[in-house]
Write a protein that binds this DNA or RNA. Structure first.
Lengths: 218, 218
DNA sequence: CCATCATTCTATCAATTCATTGAATGATGG
DNA sequence: CCATCATTCAATGAATTGATAGAATGATGG
């Protein structure tokens, strides 16, 4: 066994840690912010024991670290670049696997026929923020908003959307964002707000990608 | 099973395709240029049948495509970004797994004590090329050089290094490169040329990374 | 159309992975 | 120190993966 092969095997071990849907879900949750095993188990629909086991796996691959805090063990991503890694994996998969396209279009099934709901790219969003023509709306649960959010974003969790319309500006276009490209919260929010007559589009990425790109957060 | 979960499972399937040392070796070879099953099997020390099986796996994950050319089947990477994906995987692994550091340092074991052999970064190399202060040396086999190489690079395969010293300029620093960060060819070349008194360092990446970054090739 | 070569397919076995269950560990509050 | 809660460990069985060997397919040159 050459060093070369051992090196590739070690890399393969890291890739294998990414090779399970539940573990990817755990990583995506951790990209929103650190969390305890129980929190992680709840948000990913795993039993605590099972979640713990997957977290150990991710830890052996160097993707997460654990830190005891009182009774709980808090997990976190070891490296901001893991978000980039997942993003690149997603891009490659979307471009080259027909299956992915099918699933993505089904996820956003109720999409618009006119193309008016086209998502806002990162560059476009940055331009809109700089010029002050855009207001940001964070539709994630308050807990995730508080763990970190885009600058000057207003938080209205999706469930309370209709109750808190007063917080939305009427003089600017609204851009809604949530957890990432596959998160349906902002998509749903855009649908509902458009029906109410708001000028609103959705950000094509989410909070973790924004943060991993080194852009400012609050 | 929600769409969300199916999406992550599909992503996981792609990651799993990366989760095997032999398949990573195949991808690294393909990053140098397209190749037939037999060529791939030879350069990765696999039996043809086994290589074919792994290539099918990569194909199902959308990472490679196959095209018949006469008697042979030629495989190629579906996407230039796969090189970036592998690079990012490598970076994350190197930063967060102690095991990786150990293996990398062993791979380049005969390294210098003085730090004079410090590798040249991409930006540094670009600056050197623009100012004309640097000459490029490609130490890969002629076949790989011909499939594509950095602009104005001289090709001297490592085995013929001492026979073709005449092709090397004496008035500029030489930067040697080969297949990628874990390829030892350029490292070995630098060792030997330094002993002969040449002013030479090694490029910290390789041909595939250069190409994937969209930089010019010949 | 036959012989040959490159590749893929099929079947098999050993090894690994994953979910589940229940026991063990470790920290906290009384 | 004991009871409780959060997490991890250990054992089991089902499913998947990987290597090997040999048969089957598909293209080419005579």
């Amino acid at each position: 066994m050459t060093s070369q092969q051992e090196l590739l095997d070690t890399l393969a071990q890291v890739a294998r840690a990414l090779g399970n849907g539940h573990r990817l879900a755990l990583l995506e949750r951790l990209a929103q912010g650190d969390a305890s095993v129980e929190t992680l188990a709840n948000t990913t629909d795993l039993t605590v024991g099972n979640a713990s086991q997957h977290l150990q796996h991710l830890r052996r691959a160097g993707l997460v670290t654990a830190q005891r805090s009182g009774k709980q063990v808090i997990y976190r991503l070891t490296d901001e670049r893991i978000v980039n890694l997942l993003g690149l994996l997603r891009q490659v998969a979307e471009t080259n696997l027909a299956e992915m396209e099918r699933l993505v279009s089904r996820l956003f099934a109720e999409d618009d026929a006119d193309g008016v709901l086209e998502a806002v790219s990162r560059d476009e969003l940055l331009a809109g923020l700089v010029s002050g023509e855009v207001a940001l709306l964070d539709v994630r649960p308050a807990e995730e908003y508080e763990a970190g959010h885009l600058p000057e974003a207003i938080n209205i969790p999706l469930e309370q959307l209709e109750d808190m319309l007063g917080k939305l500006p009427l003089d600017r276009e609204i851009v809604a964002y949530c957890r990432g490209p596959y998160c349906v919260l902002s998509h749903e929010a855009v649908q509902r707000l458009r029906q109410l007559g708001y000028r609103v589009r959705r950000f094509e990425e989410g909070y973790p990608e924004w943060k991993a790109a080194g852009l400012p957060i609050e």
